[in-house]
Computed example of a mutant assay.
Amino acid sequence: MTTHPPPPLSDPPAGPVPVTGAGFLLGARLALPVAPGMIAIALATGATAARIGLSAIENLVMCATMFASSSQLVAMELWPQRFTPGAVLALALIALTINARMLLITATLRPWMGGLPGWIYPVLHITSDPSWIVSMRYRNEGGRDAGVFFGASVLLVSVWLASTQVGYLLGALVTDPKRWGIDLVMPVFFAAMVVPLWRGRRAALPWLVAGAVALVVERLVGGWSFIVAGAIAGAVTGGLMDDRRD
């Protein structure tokens, strides 16, 4: 699910960061408007897992350990017929590339939650784009209760796990994916991701470079490397444009 970064944060007040039940409930309530979008993506993810032949347990384990709709959908669309070390490495690299943004997202939480005990680090696994933006907007408005982050994250990961299983059960009933449009999950999903990112014609140049490089690499090299090549080319182009603007 694509989100836009919140405005720059002001310095939080000094003192211990509270984590309260009231904050937890507030975070869950703030995340409720995002839940329908999460459900839609989760249903598509579960249905895709059924289509490629994963078991219900495999689908549940994947969704719980990855919790990353975009990389899961890409990985499943590229699911190999036979697994080799190279195929596993390629899938891992693709997932790592798509999820690299989480390094920056979780880094922005440190000024707020850096003083919390060590248990915070494994809990960060349930961070998602929507829970992050809900929490950071709350903090930018002067809030300090870290329970808001946990409430939003727990609600959304619960919705995700339940909905992916429902999607799996519904997808298992579909014998012809093309008849029901399940084969269009990937194009529609990424088209929906791209539209909110539009910032005018000049900002479209990295997209065009990424697409062109991906097409060339796919034709010349084949395999899955075109995804990584396109992503790197687009990122480098965007970085060079930002440097010139500065």
Rank of each mutant, 00 (worst) to 15 (best):
M1K: 01
T2W: 09
H4P: 03
H4N: 12
P6N: 12
S10H: 13
S10T: 15
P13L: 14
P13G: 13
V17A: 09
T20R: 07
A22S: 14
A22C: 05
G23H: 10
G27E: 02
G27P: 02
R29P: 00
L32C: 03
A35C: 05
M38Y: 09
A42K: 02
L43T: 07
G46S: 04
A47S: 10
T48W: 08
A49S: 15
G53K: 07
L54M: 12
L54F: 08
L54W: 03
I57M: 15
E58D: 14
E58T: 09
E58N: 10
L60R: 07
M62F: 07
C63F: 06
C63D: 14
A64N: 01
M66D: 06
M66V: 13
M66T: 14
F67N: 02
S69D: 15
L73S: 05
V74G: 03
A75S: 11
M76Q: 11
M76C: 03
M76I: 10
L78P: 00
W79S: 04
P80T: 01
P80G: 01
Q81G: 15
F83L: 11
T84G: 10
T84N: 04
T84Q: 07
P85T: 03
L89A: 15
A90G: 09
L91Y: 01
A92G: 10
L104T: 11
L104M: 14
T106L: 12
R110F: 12
P111S: 07
W112V: 11
M113S: 09
G114H: 03
G115V: 01
P117Q: 05
L124M: 11
T127D: 04
T127V: 14
D129W: 00
S131P: 01
S131A: 13
W132I: 04
V134K: 00
S135N: 06
S135D: 04
M136T: 14
N140P: 03
E141G: 15
G142Y: 06
R144A: 08
R144F: 02
D145G: 05
V148M: 06
F149T: 00
F150P: 01
G151V: 04
A152H: 00
S153Q: 01
V154P: 00
L155V: 00
L156F: 01
V157A: 00
A162I: 13
S163P: 00
Q165R: 09
V166T: 12
G167Q: 07
L169N: 09
L170Y: 06
V174K: 02
D176L: 12
P177H: 06
K178R: 14
R179N: 13
V185M: 13
V185L: 12
P187I: 08
V188C: 15
F189R: 03
F189Q: 02
F189E: 07
F190K: 08
A191L: 15
A191D: 08
M193R: 00
M193D: 04
G200K: 05
R201L: 14
R202W: 07
A204G: 08
L205M: 15
L205G: 07
L208M: 13
A210H: 09
G211M: 10
G211R: 10
G211S: 12
V213M: 10
V213Q: 11
L215P: 02
V216T: 11
V217F: 04
V221Q: 14
G222V: 08
G223H: 02
S225C: 08
G230E: 03
A231T: 11
I232K: 08
I232E: 09
A233I: 03
T237Y: 07
G239E: 12
D242F: 12
